[in-house]
């Protein structure tokens, strides 16, 4: 092992993808979250603010979205705007789940 360490240097840092929900205020402050406490809070706050920015930009374009979904290669984010803030759901995508098309309305309870 000592030989391998010398050859490849230090171990790379692997960040686990978050999973859970975040409730964020209109100011971008994280109010509650079910994401593991080991996950950096600063990163969660940044994500929350970017999601609020998405809602803001849609409003600016007169599209006024109430729900939003972002589907990345390994992560899915869905959000619903609530009183200027938002509830954000984050779920990592495995090979099976990313192949299936998720339904935003099954992830987020309907207003009605």
């Amino acid at each position: 092992m000592g030989f391998l360490s010398k050859l490849f240097g230090s171990r790379p840092v692997i960040q686990q993808l978050p999973s859970g929900s975040i409730t964020v205020s209109r100011n971008g402050d994280v109010l509650t979250t079910t994401v593991s406490s080991t996950y950096p809070r600063a990163l969660l706050r940044e994500i929350a603010r970017e999601v609020l920015r998405q809602f803001y930009e849609a409003r600016q374009a007169q599209l006024a979205l109430e729900e939003l979904s972002l589907h990345f290669g390994s992560l899915r984010i869905t959000a619903r705007q609530i009183q200027g803030g938002a509830v954000i759901f984050i779920s990592p995508q495995s090979a099976q789940t990313s192949a299936a098309t998720a339904n935003i309305k099954t992830l987020i309870p309907s207003k009605n």
Binding site: P18, I47, E50, L65, E67, L68, L70, H71, F72, L75
Partner: peptide, 24 residues
């Protein structure tokens, strides 16, 4: 929207944006 999504993807190292959606 794509630029913002790209920033989120980079922060999470979540890979490329496959699709984005919204509704009202």
């Amino acid at each position: 929207a794509q630029r913002t999504a790209q920033r989120i993807g980079e922060k999470f190292s979540a890979g490329p944006l496959i699709q984005a959606g919204g509704s009202n």
